[in-house]
């Protein structure tokens, strides 16, 4: 006799005594223009799928509650926090872009500006910062300081690279920078 148990997101089929088969659903994802099939429990966040299932490690875990922005990815061009996004919400053909897919040859204006200004310190939050900034510029190619603040405010940086983030976005947008440095 076969018995099924539903425990949280899992469907368990009792196989033999003390033996279970976990039946996991399979999802199709389009990430960086590549199709992936992922077997995972429903409810698993896209962050863990990207990182631990697919090995796309550029998207970082920072808080798990969409408060730090380290896991920012693009879904159909919009910046989204992967840490609160369950996989089943993303398996309908949406185009996902991660930091690995933002630019194949490092020539994205945000990446170039980040390099010019030497933004990163520890670097951990920077994938999220860059993805957020790239989405901002894609939607608004000449953001004001206020608009930059509004867009970037959900991305934390504990090293305190915000001054250079501001400067880099202004450079990428072809604006005069408001950050001064003196020797």
């Amino acid at each position: 006799m076969i018995t099924f148990h539903k425990i949280g997101p899992y469907i368990l089929r009792k196989f033999e005594k003390h033996q279970f088969i976990f039946i996991m659903p399979t999802y199709s994802l389009n990430i960086n223009n590549k199709n992936y099939q992922v077997e995972a429990d429903a409810g698993t966040t896209v962050l863990w799928i990207l990182r631990e299932h697919l090995g796309l490690m550029g998207t970082k875990y920072g808080c798990g509650i969409a408060q730090c922005g380290s896991c920012t990815i693009h879904v159909n061009g919009n910046p989204v926090r992967a840490c609160v996004l369950p996989i089943e919400g993303l398996a309908n053909g949406q185009k996902i872009v991660t930091i690995e897919g933002l630019s194949t040859d490092q020539d994205h204006p945000i990446i170039k500006a980040w390099e010019k200004v030497q933004v990163p310190q520890c670097g951990y939050c920077q994938s999220g910062q860059i993805m957020q900034a790239a989405a901002l510029l894609a939607q608004n190619n000449s953001p004001t300081r206020e608009e930059i603040i509004q867009s970037m405010n959900g991305n934390l940086c504990r090293c305190g690279t915000y001054m250079r983030i501001m400067e880099a976005i202004q450079i990428a947008a072809g604006q005069p920078t408001s950050v001064k440095s003196d020797e």
Binding site: I111, E115, V119, G123
Partner: peptide, 14 residues
């Protein structure tokens, strides 16, 4: 260390 910190390649223990 910065080039790898711009494209997700920099490797942290996590």
């Amino acid at each position: 260390d910065i080039p790898d910190k711009l494209n997700g390649a920099a490797q942290f223990a996590i």
